[in-house]
C-alpha cells in the first residue's frame, strides 16, 4: 500500500500549525476541519513534527 499521512480526528484541534510549515500547499483548514491534499504531499513530515497533539499520522 502507498504511504500517506492521515489526520487522527480524535487528536486534531484544528490549530493550523501544520499549515504554517507546509512548503507544498498540501493542507488547509476548511471552516473548522483540517484537510490534507494527498496529491501535493511529498511526505516531508514537517507537519507531523509541528503538530501539538501529534494528530498527523503516517499510514504505511
Amino acid at each position: 500500500m502507498e504511504r500517506k499521512i492521515n489526520i487522527n480526528r480524535y487528536k486534531c484541534a484544528c490549530c493550523g500549525a501544520c499549515i504554517a510549515v507546509c512548503n507544498f500547499n498540501a493542507n488547509e483548514i476548511i471552516n473548522t476541519f483540517l484537510e490534507i491534499k494527498d496529491k501535493n504531499c511529498t511526505l516531508c513530515f514537517s507537519c507531523i513534527k509541528a503538530c501539538p497533539f501529534r494528530a498527523i499520522e503516517l499510514e504505511e
Binding site: C15, A17, A20, V21, N23, K49, A50, C51, F53
Partner: peptide
Amino acid sequence: TTLNLNELESCV
C-alpha cells in the same frame, strides 16, 4: 511565509 520547524513553537 512558510516557516521552518525551528521557526515554529508548537503549543498546547
